[in-house]
């Protein structure tokens, strides 16, 4: 549910609950995107690949 939905209520419960949900989703998504970007950068030699 997004805040512009008519069922949305601006109260603490909604903000905490959806806040945590969207935060968790953002963290996971950001991690994957960062890994993907790093990969692209390393593949094209923009950044030096660290030795694993």
């Amino acid at each position: 549910m997004l805040p512009f939905c008519f069922e949305w209520v601006w109260n603490v419960d909604h903000i905490i609950f959806f806040g945590l949900l969207y935060t968790a989703l953002t963290i996971v998504a950001t991690c994957v995107v960062i890994a993907a970007i790093k990969t692209v950068m390393q593949v094209f030699g923009f950044t030096r690949q660290r030795h694993f």
């Binding site: 968790a24 963290i27 996971v28 991690c31 994957v32 960062i34 890994a35 993907a36 790093k38 990969t39 390393q42 593949v43 690949q49 694993f52």
Partner: peptide, 23 residues
């Protein structure tokens, strides 16, 4: 090569992923 690097990059963020997974 690309997948190898991607896999390693995923490994690097595993701490954050594991923490959010724990939560």
């Amino acid at each position: 090569k690309e997948l190898h690097i991607f896999g390693h990059n995923l490994h690097h963020i595993m701490g954050v992923i594991a923490a959010s997974g724990t939560f």
